[in-house]
């Protein structure tokens, strides 16, 4: 059965909320019922059938053909199945996702993977600020799952992260791991200022010695620990990286000593 496919007919005039287009929400609906779903967020909101051409029938495997930074909340609250987007998406992709697979072949806006608790998001392009982080007023960030950004990520990556893995493969902005309390953030490439600011626990893994560290992180030598080997193997097995990130005996900083000081930054030595 062919994947249920939504082809964007034109650049939408208003921002679209695609949180209703998930495998679980569409299961059992006819094409006509799907076309009548309201996805517009403006004063006279558009329906799915007004802006998307709907083909295919397999609701467990969705494809969004098209690219627009106005496609918000793609895969939001997804609990299973798969969604593939052939271009860029807007804000809050994969928000509160708990299962399944979301592949974005372009870039994503702010708050991708915000508050996700399971599943896997892969963004082939760049991502905006606050990936995995909570929205204004929320106190819990990402709680599980895997979020991979093949390009660059903006500021505040992994804000309030408490479980799960975020991997960023071409560097990130300032305040990576801001307020994180557990979980792991992997960054290959240049890291901006103040990584781990207000970090209580958890691990930041870098492929080079971090610059612009806040002075409340202290060097802890080159511990010979099993974790780096195990995690390198995980990253290669999951096809997130082709080669190990940390290698043998990575360097280590402990912090943020302004709070509990139980977090760590591990980095590959020699770069």
């Amino acid at each position: 059965m062919k994947a249920l496919t939504f082809s964007l007919l034109a650049e939408p005039e208003e921002r679209l909320d695609l949180s209703g287009l998930t495998p679980a929400a569409l299961a059992g609906l006819t094409a006509l019922q799907i076309a009548k779903l309201r996805i517009g967020t403006g004063r006279n909101p558009v329906l799915a059938g007004d802006i998307l051409k709907i083909t295919g029938k397999d609701a467990d495997s969705l494809v969004v053909e098209g690219s627009s930074s106005r496609l918000d909340k793609v895969g939001s609250r997804m609990i299973g199945g798969s969604i593939r987007v052939t271009g860029n998406v807007g804000n809050q992709a994969g928000r509160e996702m708990s299962g399944g697979s979301l592949i974005i072949e372009g870039g994503a806006g702010d708050h991708a993977g915000s508050g996700m608790s399971g599943g896997r998001i892969e963004i082939k392009g760049n991502a905006g600020d606050n990936i995995g982080g909570p929205l204004a007023g929320e106190i819990v960030g990402m709680e599980g799952g895997v979020l991979i950004v093949n390009g660059k990520a903006g500021n505040y990556a992994g804000d309030r992260l408490r479980r799960g893995v975020i991997a960023i493969l071409k560097g990130c902005g300032d305040y990576a791991g801001y307020r994180m309390i557990a979980g792991t953030i992997v960054v290959k490439g240049r890291v901006g200022a103040m990584p781990g600011y207000l970090m209580k626990r958890g691990s930041l893994l870098f492929d080079r010695r971090p610059e612009n560290l806040v002075p409340t992180f202290m060097p802890c030598g080159e511990p010979d620990i099993a974790f780096s080997d195990l995690f390198d193997r995980f990253l290669v097995d999951e096809k997130i990286l082709a080669r190990p990130l940390l290698g043998q005996k990575p360097g280590r900083y402990g912090g943020d000593n302004a709070v509990s000081g139980k977090g760590e930054i591990l980095f590959r030595r020699g770069r």
Binding site: L213, F217, V259
Partner: peptide, 11 residues
């Protein structure tokens, strides 16, 4: 904040 809690700092 770290110094007022008698924690180590780099500067």
């Amino acid at each position: 904040r770290a110094q007022l809690q008698d924690r180590q700092v780099a500067r």
